[in-house]
Design a protein around this nucleic acid. Structure first.
Length: 445
DNA sequence: GCTAATGATTCGCA
DNA sequence: TGCGAATCATTAGC
């Protein structure tokens, strides 16, 4: 049955949606069982419909009067309920199915980003968290602290503006929604507006405001990005490493000269030992990065290779230094092994890399001293240290006499093509299977 | 201000 | 993806 027919049938007397016709008029049976009365009512309804159709052509006063007349008409409740039903079953059912929109991915991205940057969500330091963590790692250099506080202050400003605006939007949205709902409820007395329709209207309003909010979120994201890029740009300013950091890196480099390619674990360990600075950390966006170690080794390898002669002196300095460390370590190990336990050869190197153990610093020296350490209980690494020490001492003396000719650090790590030796050759290469601590004992065996 | 040193970046390659 | 090489940009010493 089509709607038009149903209207006619309903108006003809069938109870519609629980409404009974008011005005004391007894409803006739459907389909005009009473032919005379049915014709009269059809005429009546035809007039009403005609009045409705022509109401817009009339003046406002006349229209109001007509409207009032229609509202008071005895058929009005029946017509009203019919119209409600028609709206319910046609337009709304179709729209309702279409309005189940999935969450906007763009909005989700913005939300996630604002959350990650600490602009949205609970205040927890947000985007400055990384900076703060890095600051802690760096030991809090004064200039960095200033930059951090500056960054945090600006981020806080953005956060405040964002929340203020968001609050305004939400307030406006709520006010407007309430206003519209009241209007619709008011109008629902005179025209067919179902609760579902009101609900749908509220949804539309929310979506409109949500799109405005998205613009706000987008602008906020852009502001944060600009701030971040400026902040990081400022951090890209080159700062020299501390002397200690340079020494640590140099120690590693020269003790692994045949293969100066630290593993990820070694890089991490080196970064920790070097007390990585904020600028270097944040330049990669993470306080845990150790890319500065890679940069340093990349630069060092290139510059060493380009000018080996220039680095000879430096190399020997580190050789002597590590030899002294080795001596201390070896002596301690010997003492420990003799005094305490015959089966505890691993003495460690008291905080610095166990460089002499690496062996490749003195690859060509291993066979020079045939006499092994007599303490049979001492492990191989201690033995190696002692051997190394003996050899370094002798070599250092020779170097002073014949600089350039008998350099302690001959570029043995470089092959004929200018590349470094194959990584499998030196014993110093840190196995990828070793843990971070392996930096200190990469060639113990 | 000049220059060397040096950390960071970029690009091409394997 | 990591490397070498070139280059940029900044710092430090004079």
């Amino acid at each position: 049955m089509d709607d038009q027919a149903r209207i006619m049938q309903s108006i003809g007397g069938v109870s519609l949606a629980g409404h009974s016709v008011q005005g004391g008029m007894a409803l006739p049976p459907p389909h005009g069982h009473d032919g005379t009365d049915g014709d009269g009512r059809k005429q009546d309804i035809g007039d009403i419909l005609h009045q409705i159709m022509t109401i817009t052509d009339q003046s406002l006063d006349e229209a109001q009067a007509k409207k009032h007349g229609l509202n008071c008409h005895r058929m009005k409740p029946a017509l009203f309920s019919v119209l409600c039903e028609i709206k319910e079953k046609t337009g709304l059912s179709i729209r309702g199915a279409q309005e189940e929109d999935p969450p906007d991915p763009q909005l989700m991205r913005l939300d996630n980003m604002l959350l990650a940057e600490g602009v949205a969500g609970p205040e927890k330091g947000g985007g400055s968290a990384a900076a703060a963590a890095a600051a802690a790692a760096s030991g809090g250099a004064a200039d960095n602290s200033i930059e951090h506080s500056d960054y945090r202050a600006k981020l806080t400003q953005i956060r405040q503006i964002y929340h203020t605006e968001l609050e305004k939007y939400e307030q406006a949205c709520n006010e407007f929604t309430t206003h519209v709902m009241n209007l619709l409820r008011e109008q629902s007395r005179t025209r067919p507006i179902s609760p579902k329709e009101i609900e749908r209207m509220v949804g539309i309003i929310h979506r409109k405001f949500s799109s405005i909010q998205m613009q706000l979120k987008q602008s906020t994201c852009e502001a944060v990005m600009i701030l971040r890029s400026r902040f990081l740009d400022a951090r890209r300013k080159r700062r020299n490493f501390s002397k200690q950091a340079t020494e640590i890196l140099n120690e590693y480099f020269y003790s692994h000269l045949s293969n100066p390619y630290p593993s990820e674990e070694a890089k991490e360990e080196l970064a920790k030992k070097c007390s990585i600075t904020v600028s270097q950390c944040l330049s990669k966006g993470s306080p845990l990065c150790f890319s500065f170690v890679s940069n340093w080794f990349g630069n060092k390898r290139i510059r060493y290779k380009k000018n080996i002669g220039k680095f000879q002196e430096e190399a020997n300095l580190y050789a002597a230094k590590t030899a002294v460390n080795a001596a201390h370590a070896a002596a301690a190990a010997v003492q420990n092994s003799q005094a305490n336990s015959p089966t505890t050869p691993n003495s460690g190197s008291s905080g610095s890399f166990n460089l002499p153990n690496s062996g490749d610093m003195f690859l060509s020296m291993q066979s020079l001293n045939g006499d092994s350490y007599q303490g049979a209980q001492v492990g191989a690494n201690v033995q190696s240290q002692v051997d190394t020490l003996r050899h370094v001492i002798s070599q250092t003396a020779g170097y002073n006499d014949a600089l350039g000719g008998n350099a302690m650090y001959s570029p043995h790590g470089l092959n004929a093509n200018g590349g470094w030796q194959d990584a499998t050759t030196p014993s110093s290469v840190i196995s990828p299977t070793e843990g971070p601590g392996s930096v200190q004992s990469d060639t113990s065996n």
